[in-house]
Design a protein around this nucleic acid. Sequence first.
DNA 1: CGACACTTTGACGCACTTCAAAGGGGGTGG
DNA 2: CCACCCCCTTTGAAGTGCGTCAAAGTGTCG
Lengths: 226, 226
Amino acid sequence: MLAHTTNFAPAPVRNARTAPPAATHGLADALDMMGAPMTFKRNAEIYGENEPAEYLYKLVKGAVRTSKFLDDGRRQIGDFYMPGDIFGLEAAAEHTFSAEAISDVQVIVVKRSAVEALAVRDNDVARQLWTMTRRELQRMQDHILLLIKTAQERVAGFLLEMANRIKARDEFDLPMSRQDIADYLGLTIETVSRTLTSLENSAAIALPSSRRVVLRNRAALARMNA
Amino acid sequence: MLAHTTNFAPAPVRNARTAPPAATHGLADALDMMGAPMTFKRNAEIYGENEPAEYLYKLVKGAVRTSKFLDDGRRQIGDFYMPGDIFGLEAAAEHTFSAEAISDVQVIVVKRSAVEALAVRDNDVARQLWTMTRRELQRMQDHILLLIKTAQERVAGFLLEMANRIKARDEFDLPMSRQDIADYLGLTIETVSRTLTSLENSAAIALPSSRRVVLRNRAALARMNA
DNA sequence: CGACACTTTGACGCACTTCAAAGGGGGTGG
DNA sequence: CCACCCCCTTTGAAGTGCGTCAAAGTGTCG
């Protein structure tokens, strides 16, 4: 484990997002310092369900999903992560979800114990860990709100959320497949596909290719988001 | 605000649950010391959506729900809290859900800023805040898993979860109404009612009264939980 | 005892699933 | 460079679980 396949540390794409309360920088930098770069190929497992949660991950490049299988084969996607995001925070002693690379992925991996040791010395780091966890919790709550809505509302909400996460304005590529979207939204792949087609027909979006999305009418999408 | 109607501090029902890594005691005790007792009547709002999140609450007696309304009137219950639980942690600057008393409720209220000040001095408290938040996050993930299942699976899972939360073995009273259950599970009140009846008919549970539940066949319920 | 709020039961409709098959599109080998 | 193949996505037709609308129990508190 932890044998990294490449060791280039590319001018580390720091949090270029619009000033997140300045809070995350200490922690993010610390992770960069303490961590080891690693890469994963598309569809590779980064960690598995029920594995001990020994590491934190900062996503540098690519996209990651967390997922969990039910006994009968149904799959639920917990969340998607984009470059700049930190994941692996969710868990207590063991991961309840597994994490997989959606595309080829570059991450910085840090031992949890090291981060926690740092947190004991540096209260700022401790507070930031707490803040990040709360942010994750908020996303879970938003996810719950999505899951009680109609198919159209879920898909519209999903597209708006992705636009934000990717920091794109109106046009972007979805990193994940229709199946991943379906399993995130608790729908079938057919319903997702049909709903996207219907949104395109109503001129709310355009789909130049199956992965590429153009938001043509954000207001309409937001309205659907109930 | 904070005018408490009773000031008895009853032999504080400490976390009698099976040894939670001993971790929560420092924090729970600190809250008892720093906090002010308050009571809320059934259906009273403890805090509202979009209110600044200034306080943490430790539930002493009664039951609490957090909820959020969608524009069209649909309501989602975020979580239920039982005596011993701490709530109000979820939020960043503002509450995204409101909290209401399900029954008459006694809480200990503590200023968030005071807890955070304590956390700066006491790393143990900081770690415990983080741990509690992670526990909350786990519950949200479990909630998400419930929401993608069939009605029967949701209700079965809900009953098992409640049995754990209430620390009851096989028989207990539900503190919440059918409507609350429905809004927690993303179902209608009729579907919840029908499903409970069907579980009773299949001898998985008994319902001596509408609020009282007897788990007759935990294994069957667990099997339904997929 | 009566009124009200909550719960249960019934009949019907619809949104989403299921099952099935027909498009793409992109990568590899000939 | 083209052709073939595989995987993903889209579209269609039919089935069903849950929602909706309606009304009849049931328990509780004044």
